[in-house]
Amino acid sequence: MKLLTLNFLTCAIKTCKTNSASFPLHPRDAELEIVEADVNLPFLKNILPRLMWDELRGICTELGLPELPATPPTPADLIQPSSSTPETTDAAPIAEADEEPSQTAKDLHRVLLETCIQEGKLVCGACEHEYAVKEGVANFLLPGHLV
């Protein structure tokens, strides 16, 4: 399960959802694996405003990963500055296809989309319920008494 997924996950127990301590879930005993994938720059740009940055930073710290910058990058930070200045002035802005990902984009891609939790647990900070992750798939089924 890629770390980006944690940005969209919370505790499955209804009463926890209104408790801010239930987000994000905290990885515990996590076995990480890097699953390489191509950098998708438009996707990274699109996802940027959706990221709960401070929470993701916290998760990276908990997992012992390289620290994310204190503030989220801007879309412009994700694009490698072109070495040659554009020659034409009347042309449309540089097509997206021509943009190259910056180191910032590559780092973000590495953390969010290539770093996967293969085994371990996700723990709710509010109720401390533990959800198992096996073979990269987290299981959120609750025992009957918690439904």
Partner: peptide
């Protein structure tokens, strides 16, 4: 993920 429609972890 594995989840129940009536207890979604989102």
């Amino acid at each position: 993920i594995v989840a129940d429609t009536l207890a979604l972890p989102h």
